[in-house]
């Protein structure tokens, strides 16, 4: 199993997101006052400053906006992984998330911009929180 770094909690803005992940939900927020989609999670709307936000569960489907494949990393949790991807994924609900594309044999050739992907909650070697990653559909 992978051994990605865990979120460092408690942390006020991101706690609800990670509780959602534990429950199998990819959570995002919308503003009650101006309808802005807010991500990454915060306690205020980034468009109007309102503190009235609603937390929702996304369907988990989206497309790859862009990506790269990391060939060299000194981070101890990733140093032995071999080439691994990082990507910005645009979710269908209108938010963009940094994540990783998994489930491909060769990330250097099989990941494409615009590719449809779906979230999965990847269990980790250590730690209570699975990590949301995306797999081509």
């Amino acid at each position: 199993m992978p051994n990605r770094p865990q979120p460092d909690l408690p942390e006020h803005d991101t706690a609800a997101f990670w509780e959602g992940v534990k429950a199998g939900e990819l959570r995002y927020q919308t503003c009650n006052d101006c309808k802005e989609v807010v991500f990454t999670p915060r306690a205020h709307c980034t468009a109007c400053g309102s503190g009235k936000l609603t937390t929702k569960a996304a369907k988990g489907t989206g497309t790859v906006y862009t990506y790269s494949v990391v060939r060299q990393s000194r981070h101890p949790n990733f140093a032995d992984l071999g080439a691994y991807s990082v990507a910005y994924v645009d979710l269908d609900e209108g938010f963009r998330m940094l994540s990783s594309i998994v489930g491909v044999n060769d990330p250097t050739t099989e990941i494409k911009i615009g590719m449809p992907v779906k979230v999965e909650f990847e269990k980790q070697d250590t730690g209570d929180y699975p990590i949301p990653v995306f797999r081509p559909v």
Partner: peptide, 27 residues
């Protein structure tokens, strides 16, 4: 070197993915 550690509003959303500074520009 990989991303900064977690424990912040942004770090907690990015550190699990091992994105490096170069990978960010590469995207």
């Amino acid at each position: 070197g990989g991303g900064a550690g977690g424990g912040t509003w942004s770090g907690n959303m990015e550190s699990p993915y091992g994105t490096t500074l170069i990978a960010n520009y590469a995207m």
